[in-house]
Structure formats: structure tokens, C-alpha cells
């Protein structure tokens, strides 16, 4: 599809491959320092807390909170303009780090800061999947707690 081919795709590199590999396997893996256990995103070679270069890719819960968002009307890149207005969000994971993402599957749920969300993966091509988030469905009988 020509539309898809025009959409920008990430090119993984030596320092962040674990993050994108996780996404490809539909697991949200966040870089974790082996020396002090601090999580960090975006990926980078050294832990900003202790400067250790020893890290692994820690599978997180995939749960988080909508921290802020915008509804984009344009101008924007041609590949996205056809979908405007669309949302771009920053989600804070329950484990702490933030990600830039999109909120999906929220029909009927007005977006609001504080909305509990969970990760879903969008397969872009054979090698890249993007982590996106959808509202957490309140479980029947249990009170969904809102964080804000």
C-alpha cells in the first residue's frame, strides 16, 4: 500500500534494538540498568543514574496512564494528513518511564489526561511494530481506579 510505505518507520540501531525487537514480539521491553535497576526510555548506552553500560530489556506490564495528548489537525506530514484529526499522546507507564504513542480503540471514550491505558501493537511491516495504547476496559464488578 502506498500510504503505508510513506509512513515514517524507525530504523533500529545497536543501542535500541532490544526495544524494537520487543515490540516486534508484541512485548513492551524497557531498557533497565543491571547495576542500579533504573528503567530508562528512550534507549541510550549508559544509565543516566549510575553510568553503567550494562543493561537488559525488561518486560513491563504494558499498563499506564495518559499523561498528555494533542489532537493534530495539521499541517503535518503528508503520510498522516489523510488521517487528521488524529491523536498523539504521551503515556506514563506504571513503572515510571514515558512513551510517545497514539491512543487507539477509544471509540466513545473521550480522551482525557489520567485515562488508564494498556499497550497494543501495530504491525507496520515485516520487521517493525509500534507500541500503541488503548483504554483499559473496566473489569466487571471491580472498581477501576483513576489516577488523577
Amino acid at each position: 500500500m502506498s500510504q503505508k510505505s510513506e509512513t515514517p518507520v524507525p530504523v533500529p540501531n545497536f543501542d535500541n534494538a532490544g526495544f524494537w525487537e520487543g515490540c516486534r514480539n508484541h512485548e513492551l521491553r524497557i531498557q533497565r540498568c543491571c547495576a542500579c535497576s533504573a528503567l530508562r526510555h528512550h534507549p541510550r548506552p549508559l544509565c543516566p543514574a549510575c553510568n553503567s553500560s550494562d543493561y537488559d530489556w525488561h518486560k513491563v506490564s504494558g499498563r499506564g496512564t495518559l499523561y498528555t495528548f494533542t489532537i493534530v489537525h495539521g499541517p503535518t506530514l503528508a503520510a498522516f494528513a489523510a488521517h487528521a484529526p488524529y491523536n498523539v499522546a504521551v503515556v506514563q507507564l506504571d513503572e515510571g518511564p514515558y512513551l510517545v504513542t497514539n491512543i487507539v480503540e477509544y471509540n466513545g471514550t473521550p480522551l482525557r489526561i489520567g485515562l488508564p491505558v494498556e499497550v497494543v501493537f501495530n504491525d507496520v511491516d515485516a520487521t517493525i511494530s509500534l507500541p500503541k495504547f488503548r483504554p483499559v476496559k473496566p473489569m466487571s464488578g471491580s472498581a477501576a481506579t483513576l489516577k488523577d
Binding site: 515514517p8 535500541n16 528512550h42 512513551l99 507496520v124
Partner: peptide
């Protein structure tokens, strides 16, 4: 790569 694939341009 942490912005543009999500339409944050």
C-alpha cells in the same frame, strides 16, 4: 524515531 512514526511531526 520515537516521534515521527506516531505522527508527531
Amino acid at each position: 524515531q520515537y516521534h515521527t512514526p506516531f505522527g508527531l511531526i
